[in-house]
Design a protein around this nucleic acid. Structure first.
Lengths: 224, 224
DNA sequence: TATGCCATACTTCCATACAAGTAAAGTCCG
DNA sequence: CGGACTTTACTTGTATGGAAGTATGGCATA
């Protein structure tokens, strides 16, 4: 019997703890600034402190947690600086990717499919799935440009941004996001690189107005 | 009194081990693919395995080491995919930054100063310092654009690229790099955004020719 | 009441021991 | 001689105890 199950070996406990906490932080289940106790989490899931500690180290490396020696570990607040930086990088990179796609004119059914998912989840009020589809829409563009690795790099930078979006998407008008996606996709399908670049830059600059509003509404969740 | 001066505590042991290994990997002192033993390093520096292990976790998170459970930890090979991805991102971001600088026309003496350092270290054959100055040149542009955080993000992505550059700079013509820097800086000083963007894109595309040559010369140091 | 000291109860950090898994050498058997 | 099995020496992963540092509340004192 071929052991394909070898590849499906369960990740280490520390890795599982990390992934579990990662999702809870990104989705906002764990509030920025909240305390993370090694012993408390270890007891909760019936493990020793060591794997939990190693999960904390991973999270700190991703900028999602802050370990204060001999004082405690806390969920990192959302860094406004990091969000703005990631936004600027996304705008620069994705506008280049859009030009590539518009010029090469590859198959774009994956992006089209996500548009429909967004319509549906918006009406249903499924915020989490709407955001996931939004991400896949942008990812599909990177894939269409033949640059999957670039999207992986962007995802690492995006983590702080995603936390904010999970907050803002509950408040802001999602139909506006859909309309912007439509404009981008139409330009890509038409092979109009200039229009596509303009549209995606405008789309990503949307965050410049959302961020201050969210920071004002939840000042204790943000840090400069 | 600013409190960060009070809090100037020595970094944790694990952090020091991480930094030590990080530098050795980037500078190429530790060959890609080489084995990293927890116990061996721990005994060498007279510590237990635990802090060394935590340093490995950090390195793995940065893509510089690969931990194979129950099998061993190895210096990560230079990922061609990661280098190409980081290069594309740099080109996109830095061309935007260049436009900002050309339009805003801030003080650029920091960039000018690095040009002189590069002249000197090139003639002296000080490769490590030449690369450091090259980095500071680009960093100075990010600072001139008012985006220090963006450069910090780029630096994280650049790590794989830097390893390659420490290899290639010993071989390739550094005077060419200097000439390209000169062209970029002149365009920025003249406030010519279009020329600056064209120049920096050409500069960063240089790597597209260097990378395959380095990969061909040291195939065992690279992975796709 | 206000202030400085101190015991105490936390926290993360490091050391050590053991468990679980891998790989390769050695060994037995056909 | 060749192949499968077993032993053995590794590796990383986890558990636990204690060391070092920090914050807090109680308490004596002016």
């Amino acid at each position: 019997m071929p052991e394909h199950t070898i590849l499906a070996r369960p990740a280490s406990t520390a890795q599982q703890v990390h992934d579990w906490l990662y999702q809870r932080i990104i989705r906002g289940d764990l509030a920025p600034g909240a305390r993370l106790s090694e012993t408390e989490i270890a007891e909760t899931i019936g493990l020793s402190r060591q794997p939990v500690r190693e999960a904390f180290i991973r999270l700190a490396g991703e900028g999602l947690a802050e370990i204060k020696p001999q004082r405690g570990t806390y969920i990192g607040k959302i860094s406004i600086r990091a969000v703005l930086s990631a936004r600027l990088i996304r705008e620069a990179v994705e506008s280049d990717l859009a030009r590539m796609v518009a010029d090469a004119r590859p198959d774009l059914t994956a992006m089209q499919a996500e548009m429909e998912v967004q319509d549906r989840t918006d009406k249903a009020g499924d915020v989490a799935e709407f955001i996931a589809s939004d991400d896949r829409f942008h990812q599909a563009m990177a894939l269409a440009a033949g640059q999957p690795a670039v999207w992986q790099d962007l995802e690492r930078l995006k983590s702080q941004m995603n936390r904010m979006r999970h907050m803002s998407m509950r408040v802001f008008d999602r139909s506006q996001t859909i309309a912007q996606h439509r404009t981008i996709l139409d330009a890509l399908l038409a092979g109009d690189a200039d229009t596509a670049e303009t549209a995606i830059r405008a789309h990503l600059r949307q965050m410049l107005t959302e961020l201050p509003e969210m920071a004002a509404a939840h000042p204790d969740y943000f840090t400069d």
